[in-house]
Amino acid sequence: MDEEGGGRHPAWVYDAGDEPDPRYSLANERTFLAWVRTSLGVLAGAVALESLQVPEQDGLRLVLVVALLLFGGLTATLSWIRWARVERAMRTRAPLPPFNLGILVTAALVVLSVLLAVTLAL
């Protein structure tokens, strides 16, 4: 374990800079896991819509389910990227990256909520 980064992956994160205070790294990991839970909730919502066959129109339901599945996967992927960027910034003592993930998730949830409300009203 004398190699830089301790052989941990991704190397582009762990090979940069110095080891930060473990409390900050653990807080970053907890935030990442909170985003993963959000992603799992969205995926569960997609499964529920399909299982309960809500809305009744197959085409609308398919659009909603696929949109939720893609959104859940994208949220999980972007949360991992955010975790890595924040961890690297802490290690290199650089400014933290902007919080674009929150804006994206909020906007997507508003759009999906409106779409679901419209389809349920039909």
Results as ranks from 00 to 15, higher is better:
Val118Leu: 15
Ala94Val: 03
Phe71Pro: 01
Leu64Met: 12
Arg61Tyr: 13
Asp58Lys: 13
Glu50Ile: 05
Glu29Ile: 10
Arg85Ala: 08
Trp83Thr: 00
Ala121Thr: 07
Val63Cys: 12
Asn100Ser: 05
Val118Gly: 07
Ala67Leu: 08
Gly41Tyr: 08
Thr119Lys: 06
Ser79Lys: 00
Leu68Gly: 00
Leu122Glu: 13
Leu64Pro: 02
Asp2Asn: 13
Trp35Asn: 06
Tyr24Val: 12
Gly73Ser: 09
Trp83Glu: 01
Leu60Ala: 07
Val66Gln: 14
Asp21Pro: 06
Pro95Tyr: 04
Val66Cys: 15
Leu120Lys: 06
Thr31Cys: 04
Ala117Glu: 02
Ala16Gln: 08
Val105Asp: 00
Leu52Ser: 11
Ala46Leu: 12
Leu96Trp: 02
Leu109Val: 03
Ala27Thr: 14
His9Gly: 13
Gly72Gln: 01
Thr75Lys: 04
Leu69His: 09
Tyr24Gln: 11
Ala84Asn: 07
Val110Glu: 09
Ala89Val: 01
Gly17Met: 04
Glu19Gly: 08
Glu4Arg: 13
Ala48Val: 14
Leu60Glu: 11
Arg23Lys: 10
Ala46Glu: 04
Leu74Ser: 10
Asp21Leu: 07
Gly59Ala: 13
Glu29Phe: 10
Thr92Cys: 05
Leu109Ser: 04
Ala89Trp: 02
Arg37Tyr: 05
Thr77Arg: 04
Glu50Val: 05
Gly17Thr: 05
Val36Lys: 00
Trp83Tyr: 15
Arg61Ser: 11
Phe99Met: 01
Trp12Cys: 01
Arg8Gln: 14
Val65Phe: 05
Val42Asn: 00
Leu70Cys: 12
Leu69Val: 14
Val110Gly: 02
Trp35Glu: 06
Leu64Gly: 00
Leu116Trp: 08
Phe99Arg: 02
His9Ser: 15
Val110Pro: 01
Leu122Gln: 12
Pro98Trp: 03
Ser25Gly: 09
Thr31Gly: 06
Gln53Leu: 11
Asp2Cys: 15
Leu62Glu: 12
Leu101Ala: 05
Ala117Ser: 10
Leu40Val: 06
Glu87Gly: 01
Ile103Ala: 01
Val118Gln: 12
Ser39Asp: 08
Pro22Leu: 09
Pro10His: 15
Ile81Trp: 07
Ile103Pro: 05
Leu120Thr: 10
Phe71Leu: 09
Trp35Tyr: 14
Leu33Met: 15
Glu4Ile: 14
Gly73Lys: 08
Glu19Met: 08
Ala44Tyr: 06
Gly72Phe: 04
Asp2Ile: 15
Glu87Phe: 07
Val110Lys: 05
Val54Gln: 10
Arg30Ile: 07
Leu40Trp: 13
Asp18Leu: 11
Val63Asp: 03
Asn28Glu: 10
Val13Pro: 02
Trp35Met: 12
Ala67Phe: 07
